[in-house]
């Protein structure tokens, strides 16, 4: 709404009531968030100590370091799988498909379906397909493949939007200079769309970091860093930070450490949100 001062009617009791309802609702929303964050930081920060970041996990120090490293690895592997497919798919939808193409419609519907599926259903599917049928066992690879399907619609949607916002004159200019379609996409359109794609990727990282239910029965719950010669660490099982946090708080013996772990998760999410916000603002300025 604009802030133009058109002369407004005088507030009667009903208007006051509506005004108060709106204000109270907003107050509840934002104070709940504020309370949650302050509560976790207040109780968690004093318990952040070096032993929590020890390289080796044991039941004494309940170190979160192995889980943190696993989270980083699973994030990278997931992105390596999902980002090229997501971008490729979006390129097809925006640059190749003609208007009214049936396949585009079907892809849209399936992507919408995928984004509504709850993470536990992804977890079940990952367990049945990657772990059991393809015999990848409980492993980082099974987890990453499951998560890749989960974040695919997010990457597709944000990339599609980014590609659509590149003005057609860029493409026409490139074609006019004799460049082919592939060259135009990779040299002209994609570079212009990078910030939009990046903000989608960052949102996806946020989902991966916070994911628990989809990973319990695909990547497993082992407390150590995945290991193995060459690429065989991909087939090793390991828990991520969010599951680690769940294990700590449900066991009930390590509430202080659970608070501290929650702080670490919260800080990661805040950084992710801040970065994606910055990128979004940059896009808006251009």
């Amino acid at each position: 709404m604009t802030n133009q001062k058109i002369s407004k009617g005088k507030r009667g009791p009903l208007s006051w009531l509506l005004f108060i309802l709106v204000m109270v609702a907003a107050l509840i929303t934002f104070s709940a968030l504020l309370f949650l964050i302050v509560h976790i930081l207040w109780n968690g920060i004093p318990h952040i100590k070096p032993s929590l970041f020890a390289w080796e996990y044991n039941s004494e120090n309940v170190s979160l370091m192995p889980a943190l490293i696993n989270t980083l690895l699973i994030t990278i592997v997931t992105l390596i799988i999902a980002v090229p497919i997501g971008i490729g798919s979006a390129i097809y939808m925006v640059e190749y498909a003609k208007k009214g193409n049936k396949i585009v419609k079907v892809v849209r519907i399936t992507a919408e379906t995928l984004s509504g599926i709850p993470s536990i259903v992804y977890g079940l599917f990952g367990m049945l397909f990657f772990v059991t049928t393809l015999k990848f066992r409980l492993s980082l690879l099974s987890g990453a493949l499951t998560l890749a399907i989960m974040i695919l619609p997010l990457i597709m949607r944000t990339t599609e939007e980014a590609l659509k916002s590149v003005p057609d004159s860029y493409r026409e200019g490139s074609f006019g200079l004799g460049a082919g379609r592939v060259r135009t996409i990779f040299r002209i359109v994609l570079p212009a769309a990078v910030p939009g794609i990046l903000s989608g990727v960052i949102l996806a990282i946020g989902r991966i970091v916070g994911e628990t239910a989809a990973l319990m029965y695909t990547a497993g719950t082992v407390t150590e860093v995945v290991s193995g010669k060459g690429l065989s660490w991909l087939m090793d099982s390991g828990r991520t930070l969010a599951y680690h946090m769940y294990a700590l708080s449900s066991e009930g013996f390590h509430t202080d450490e659970a608070y501290a772990t929650a702080v670490v998760l919260l800080v990661i999410v805040m950084i992710i949100n801040w970065v994606s916000n910055r990128i979004a603002k940059k896009i808006a300025k251009v």
Partner: peptide
Amino acid sequence: IDLLAGIPSVVYGFF
């Protein structure tokens, strides 16, 4: 609001 959406469900659960 974005942050509210980004907080992992385990953190909500723990809270």
